[in-house]
Nucleic acid binder design. Structure first.
Lengths: 145, 145
DNA sequence: ATAGGGCTTCCCATCATGGGAAGGTCAAGA
DNA sequence: TCTTGACCTTCCCATGATGGGAAGCCCTAT
């Protein structure tokens, strides 16, 4: 099957399929006489695997390891679990960082009148001299509208 | 003051200061006879503003708007609030997506024995045929160890 | 035979950040 | 005064995953 069909069937764009091939994540596809890439059902199966792993946020390098284990019939599930656990740690760190940002920002937003006047605790916070931003709330009492 | 000192004082690396200048986020710095960039305290103040906005996850384009409002003494806090609100929406969307990933992955990890055997619900999920991943938990009962 | 859609490769852009090279400047110490 | 080392300058390249687009070839249906 052509790359377009493989893309549709796997959910991976043709662009990305070529990219994965180029970077060595997947082996070079077979070619027809025309030069067109030719994909089998098992190629599509692999692409779908990649797609689902990307959906879980795995980086391509991690997917590389997962693919190796997938193909290795004598793998140990502990190895898979280790990769997944490392990845979920990254996810939780990212989430924590974003939550921290969102909390701070929400506090500032809550304190901003959002009207025609120029006074704004959001800008006031960004402008602040100190480089520690943990006691934002205390400093914001001045803006209690 | 030289760029290195401005970097240290603001928390923005010298590399990034030059980048911000080049891309127009900040005006071109004054130069000494030597060609060295020369920064004033108010330049550092602005850099610190940028730094803090980046820490809240604002993109450079958004910081551009925030800087304009910051400089505009007749600004309306509503405009600032609007930018911040749009940004927090993005943050919350990202967080939701990451939480979704983490939840799914955690479910899979919880079901993985993590031992010497090859059977692994994580790989099984990635390999699955269907493209809907919501009923993962049901399908996982087979792995109840 | 021709048209249109799909394929090929190649180059470029994103976004914020860092690395590094080649060369000029400055300040402190011998 | 000369040297040395730290700092500055510009320029180029890389990251990671993705998309856009151009020039040109292939295939199929009319």
């Amino acid at each position: 099957m052509n790359i377009g069909q493989a893309a549709k069937a796997s959910g991976v764009s043709a662009k990305m399929i070529r990219y994965y091939e180029q970077t060595g994540l997947i082996p070079a596809a077979a070619r027809k006489d025309s030069g067109y890439r030719d994909y089998s059902d098992s190629d599509v199966h692999m692409l779908r695997f990649i797609r689902r792993a990307r959906d879980l946020g795995f980086a391509v390098a991690e997917i590389n390891e997962l693919l190796s284990l997938w193909r290795d019939r004598s793998r140990q599930s502990a190895d898979v679990k280790r990769i997944a656990a490392a990845h979920i740690d990254e996810l939780r760190e990212k989430i924590a960082r974003l939550n921290q940002m969102a909390d701070t920002l929400q506090t500032l937003i809550d304190c901003c009148a959002g009207d025609h006047r120029p006074d704004c605790p959001i800008l006031a916070d960004l402008e602040k001299i100190g480089d520690d931003r943990q006691q934002t709330k205390a400093a914001l009492s001045a803006f209690g509208d």
